[in-house]
Simulated assay, not measured.
Amino acid sequence: MITLGFVYVLSGLAFALFALLGLLDRTNPKRFGNAAFWGLLAVSMLAGDRLGDFGNGLLVLALVAIAGTGQIGKGPGGDIPAEEQADRAARHGNFLLLVALIIPAVALAGTFLFKWVPGIADPKQATLISLALGVLIALAVGMARLRPPLLLPAQQGRRLLDSVGWAAVLPQMLASLGAVFALAGVGEVVGGLIGGAIPEGSLFGAVLAFGLGMALFTIVMGNAFAAFPVMIAAIGMPLLIQQYGGNPAVVAAIGMLAGFCGTLMTPMAANFNLVPAALLELKSPYGVIRAQIGTAIPLLAVNIVFIWLFAF
């Protein structure tokens, strides 16, 4: 049976390859920092369960030290000329889009298949396993048809990660922060503070506090995965689910969508909002956020109404 360990091994091998290629890039003055950062991330993926809590804590501190001192960066050169990109796009046409669509198609199909046919993969992790398989299949199809140099996909992937830098692992870090907050009892403290502001017996008031809280905590923490443990412990579980009998699946799923509305409005979600602005060379680093606010606010209102309508 394929388990989540398969995804960890695949990710670890990819990061290890990126670290090695980065170390060999003598044109990049920050090649040692890049190699150390992606190499440590590879160790985390491949041997994190053997390191223990203390070892993983030291590894995270090392990652923070490398990123915090500015040791990660993209080297000069190596980009494929725009003329060559345009020529390839003209020659291969829609096939390039097909390769990209293979990944979500396999992820969707595998999610249902692995749950319907037991014994192939862990049904609890069907989506992540299917996503990893989709990446491998898309890579194989693209390599077979386009026939690029063997290491070109890895080199370009490594250069993209070097450009993104520490923001590539920000979602994992913030999700871990959310778990730490939950264990520290932050949710109960927040629940006590917010509970005093919600009118007694007001279901919509509780829903409104939950939806707005998910968005605001996401804006502060940069990731809905970090906000979710706090808000579900503060309002979602004690009020919406236990007191008012809400459907846990609806509360959790649409609550996450409310949090993602906050993601659209915060520079803390650097990998979503600041990195694209840098890659697209926008005049303002907050240009992406400004373009998204007009969608995020009404979408947040819709999600709050949906929780109220469909969870009870």
Rank of each mutant, 00 (worst) to 15 (best):
residue 277 A to G: 15
residue 179 A to Y: 09
residue 309 L to M: 10
residue 165 G to S: 13
residue 151 L to I: 02
residue 310 F to L: 11
residue 46 L to C: 15
residue 129 I to K: 07
residue 55 G to L: 05
residue 33 G to I: 08
residue 43 V to S: 05
residue 142 G to L: 13
residue 141 V to N: 10
residue 128 L to V: 02
residue 176 S to T: 01
residue 56 N to P: 10
residue 303 N to C: 14
residue 105 A to M: 02
residue 297 I to R: 04
residue 26 R to Q: 11
residue 42 A to T: 07
residue 255 G to V: 04
residue 258 A to N: 10
residue 64 V to R: 14
residue 127 T to K: 14
residue 180 V to Y: 02
residue 46 L to R: 10
residue 153 P to W: 08
residue 128 L to E: 10
residue 178 G to Q: 01
residue 212 L to V: 01
residue 34 N to W: 00
residue 245 G to K: 09
residue 216 L to S: 12
residue 43 V to C: 09
residue 35 A to N: 05
residue 100 A to K: 02
residue 275 V to H: 08
residue 240 L to Y: 01
residue 1 M to G: 07
residue 103 I to Y: 03
residue 298 P to M: 14
residue 43 V to Y: 13
residue 150 L to I: 06
residue 26 R to F: 12
residue 84 E to Q: 15
residue 272 F to K: 05
residue 191 G to Y: 05
residue 237 M to Y: 03
residue 310 F to W: 13
residue 280 L to I: 08
residue 64 V to F: 15
residue 197 A to W: 15
residue 259 G to Q: 07
residue 297 I to F: 04
residue 308 W to G: 05
residue 1 M to T: 09
residue 200 E to V: 13
residue 40 L to W: 15
residue 11 S to I: 06
residue 133 L to N: 13
residue 183 L to W: 01
residue 298 P to G: 09
residue 28 N to H: 08
residue 6 F to D: 01
residue 81 P to E: 12
residue 214 M to T: 11
residue 162 D to S: 07
residue 207 V to W: 02
residue 290 R to G: 02
residue 186 V to H: 00
residue 278 A to F: 11
residue 226 A to G: 09
residue 23 L to P: 06
residue 49 D to N: 12
residue 14 A to S: 03
residue 30 K to R: 05
residue 278 A to T: 11
residue 24 L to K: 06
residue 212 L to T: 02
residue 177 L to F: 04
residue 195 G to P: 12
residue 226 A to N: 03
residue 268 M to W: 06
residue 183 L to G: 01
residue 34 N to V: 00
residue 310 F to N: 07
residue 184 A to I: 04
residue 50 R to V: 11
residue 188 E to C: 00
residue 30 K to H: 06
residue 311 A to D: 06
residue 296 A to I: 06
residue 188 E to H: 04
residue 152 L to N: 03
residue 187 G to R: 01
residue 168 A to G: 08
residue 190 V to E: 00
residue 302 V to F: 14
residue 106 V to Y: 11
residue 79 D to G: 14
residue 165 G to W: 10
residue 179 A to V: 02
residue 63 L to S: 13
residue 222 G to Q: 15
residue 236 G to L: 11
residue 8 Y to V: 04
residue 11 S to N: 07
residue 47 A to F: 11
residue 163 S to V: 02
residue 131 L to V: 06
residue 192 G to R: 01
residue 298 P to H: 09
residue 160 L to S: 09
residue 298 P to Y: 14
residue 273 N to F: 05
residue 226 A to H: 04
residue 34 N to R: 00
residue 40 L to K: 13
residue 305 V to R: 08
residue 53 D to F: 11
residue 139 L to K: 14
residue 291 A to Y: 05
residue 237 M to W: 01
residue 132 A to V: 08
residue 270 A to D: 12
residue 18 F to Q: 01
residue 290 R to D: 02
residue 186 V to F: 00
residue 271 N to R: 03
residue 273 N to L: 07
residue 17 L to W: 03
